[in-house]
Design a protein around this nucleic acid. Structure first.
Lengths: 191, 191
DNA sequence: TGAATTTCTTAACATACATCAATTTAATTT
DNA sequence: AAATTAAATTGATGTATGTTAAGAAATTCA
């Protein structure tokens, strides 16, 4: 059960978990692994699970009107990934989630998630704080996208998230920044 | 205490609140009113309160590099408003929050908020779900900003949020959409 | 109610980033 | 290691939206 250790560490960071809770939590999460380029979620499927990435890298994308894949989430070790809109509504997803590396994850089904949070109020607090932070981050990303240049966004990402550049191709990073690979290439040439 | 009724109604929608809890909650929120054009929060101040808008309209904005006010939140009746980044960190805010109408609000201080949630786990669930939804909404707004045209975003806002057009000047709506008033004017002419 | 201020519109021109097409470089597969 | 595929770069050109400036319309204030 060593896959669970890091996740438990993060739970404990923002919530008080008893020994008893810990056993209950561990048993609710199932370890899985996924190969590079395989799909964790496919458009029009219901997102049945919420995933904790133990080790690996995942992207969330959709196909836009012009037929291009557009990526808005890239997540690596010790982060959560899912289409929460589909997961919490249990309706078909608009997105695909794909592994960018061979990855190992922990997953919990929607039903188990709801039961677990009902049983362990400390986890409500953990996820309240998690979503609160995710919301604030996304608002910051939104204001940057609206009112900062692509070059400024690139530089900030390079500073705040250098590891992603070691592990993810630039074509994906370009999309994540909301620009084309050609534009990113030109930005990089200027620096 | 009729200001609190609508807020209690929303708490009850997603959380189970006892009579005893209700009294505790009501006493934690203080009613205030604010005149049009007055500030609820000023840049570099700590956002000391989280606010529930009983009736009225508020905007959150900052001054960009070129000296223009840029608005990323517009909230009306029965919604929450604060700079959550400042509120939860209790560090100075990057933003201003201003009343667009004479408004009545309920406010809760950071300390009281933390105590209240510790005392009433059902509220943890309420705010977990609230932030979860706010996060999903903001991600949808982000993808629209990155990969849809300003005209599409305008039309969607008109459809999803018609009331805002009755109550808020177009210069503010333009900024909220991430464009200039001139661009919005041209978009409207085309329709 | 008239003056002042704010909001909205229009036009000419500017610019950041996109698109299309071709080539080079790097990574993956057999 | 060769062949294939994917990623990255470069140049020429296009376009949505920004900028500047001015005036009209609407709202607020005295």
């Amino acid at each position: 059960m060593k896959e669970h250790n890091k996740m438990m560490y993060y739970f404990r960071k923002w919530a008080t978990i008893t020994e008893e809770d810990e056993a209950r939590i561990r048993s609710a999460f199932e370890p899985i692994s996924i190969k590079k380029k395989k799909d964790l979620l496919v458009k029009d499927q219901v997102c049945e699970y919420n995933y904790f990435i133990v080790k690996g890298c995942m992207r969330t994308f959709f196909i836009d009107k012009k037929g291009n894949e557009q990526i808005f989430q890239i997540r690596m070790d010790n982060n959560w990934i899912a289409d929460l809109e589909s997961f919490f509504s249990q309706k078909p997803s608009k997105y695909n989630i794909e592994a960018l590396e061979n990855s190992s994850l922990l997953r919990i089904s929607y039903k188990n998630f709801e039961h677990l949070l009902a049983d362990i109020p400390a986890l409500e607090k953990y996820f309240r704080v998690l979503f609160q932070k995710a919301y604030v981050n996304t608002l910051n990303r939104l204001t940057a996208t609206m009112w900062e240049s692509a070059m400024d966004r690139y530089n900030e990402m390079l500073k705040e998230n250098p590891e992603i550049f070691q592990r993810v191709p630039l074509i994906y990073i370009a999309s994540f920044l909301g620009i084309t690979p050609e534009s990113l290439s030109r930005i990089r040439k200027q620096i």
